[in-house]
């Protein structure tokens, strides 16, 4: 538990639509009305497919309530850009983590867990655990 502050969730996708739709989906599946701060960071600033470090940094700042920020990404440059920003040191809020998780399932698990007031480590573990759920 972290003083009632909730972990923020950032969803980074190559596509603005994917990022915002997964945010909506996760919020919906978590049970409407959850107050978890979630921000999508999808596509480039020009609205094309790609990754924008500015959109990621702005999204992370917007969901930072002091309890840490969990960042989930789709693939390729989304992963590399977040890692490069984390290596920079001062581009993302203190206690921001790239979470190794499947994008959709991980986002749902992260939001549901964050809604309980769980800390960043618990949110990260829940999202990562989504990898272990086999569909066949």
């Amino acid at each position: 538990m972290s003083d009632g502050k909730q972990v923020g969730i950032v969803l980074v996708s190559h596509s603005a639509e994917v990022a915002s739709s997964v945010a909506e989906l996760a919020r919906g599946l978590a049970g409407g009305g959850v107050s978890v701060p979630i921000a999508p960071a999808g596509g480039t600033e020009g609205g094309e497919l790609g990754t924008s470090s500015e959109l990621i940094a702005a999204a992370a700042a917007s969901v930072d309530r002091g309890a840490g920020v969990a960042v989930l990404t789709d693939l390729g440059s989304a992963v590399l850009t977040v890692k490069a920003l984390l290596a920079e040191g001062d581009e993302l809020p203190y206690n921001t983590r790239l979470v190794d998780a499947p994008f959709v399932e991980g986002a749902v698990a992260a939001v549901v867990t964050a809604a309980t007031g769980a800390d960043l480590a618990a949110v990260e573990a829940a999202a990562a655990e989504a990898y272990t759920y086999r569909k066949v």
């Binding site: 790609g50 924008s52 470090s53 850009t81 920003l85």
Partner: peptide, 12 residues
Amino acid sequence: LISTVGGASGPL
């Protein structure tokens, strides 16, 4: 480069 490329070559 990290902030303007938009693809994997930016962070790399």
